[in-house]
Design a binder for these strands. Structure first.
Lengths: 141, 141
DNA sequence: CTTGACCTTAAAGTTAACTCTAAGGTTTAT
DNA sequence: ATAAACCTTAGAGTTAACTTTAAGGTCAAG
């Protein structure tokens, strides 16, 4: 099949597929006489695998690693694959924690304000964002 | 004070302060004879306000809005400020939900795999990422 | 035989929020 | 008087993962 068909079947756009090729994630099995990329059903499986990985939150770099393992299972062990997943879990957990922290701060901010049509002259949100007060939780990285 | 001093006092680097100026967030009150930016204590307050906003998760665009309100409180109401905070809360909550969803998927993935030094031949992670199976939660946007 | 839908490449644009570089001017301390 | 530590600008580079553009080649239908 040609790239447009692969795009439709895999849910990855043609230009993204070309980009992935450039990034070394997937190659066309061959080229037609007119230099069109030609893909096989196997390529479609690979494309779908990539799509799944992306939907699962893996970066292109991680997808690359997973593809390497997938392409040569005999020379890898479960540990290799699981390690990638676990690292990702740690990443996501850490991001969630950060965002939870942020959410707390935001709630404090919002809750402090009446939200009415009173002049913002004494708005607690603005006051809280002024640096003189305390309660700075250091959301830096 | 000069930009380096403001940078130290506010926790925003000099180049970032210049960038913020370019983005319309903060201006030097004046320029010295040698064209150096000169900042006042008021400017420092503004810089700290911006820092607080950023640490609280607001985008530069949102910070701009907050600065507008802050600069002209009489012509804004609490509602205006609170709206920004509440919108941000919704954004963050939505992102957290997405990440939680992702985390679930990742846990399923990880839990399915023994993680041992067995060949990856039958690794459940790879199997799960193959597109033929079900359980696709559509983590697309 | 031409229109429209496809395909090709290389390169630039997008987003956000910076950071860095180059090439130079100023200030301060010794 | 000279070196270090500051300051200036404009513009380019960074990151990730694409998307868009330009300029062109191919193919099937009517």
């Amino acid at each position: 099949m040609k790239i447009g068909q692969l795009a439709k079947s895999s849910g990855i756009s043609s230009s993204t597929l070309r980009y992935y090729e450039q990034q070394g994630l997937i190659q066309a099995s061959s080229r037609s006489g007119s230099n069109y990329r030609q893909y096989t059903e196997q390529d479609l499986s690979t494309a779908k695998f990539i799509k799944r990985c992306r939907d699962t939150g893996f970066s292109l770099e991680e997808v690359s690693e997973l593809l390497s393992i997938r392409a040569d299972k005999a020379n890898y062990v479960c540990e290799d694959a699981k390690q990638i997943a676990e690292q990702k879990i740690l990443d996501v957990e850490s991001k969630i924690q950060q965002m939870q922290q942020l959410l707390n701060t935001l709630h404090q901010l919002s809750d402090a304000c009446c939200g009415g049509v009173e002049s913002a002259e004494f708005c607690r949100i603005l006051d809280t964002l002024e640096a003189d007060s305390s309660a700075n939780k250091e959301n830096n990285q």
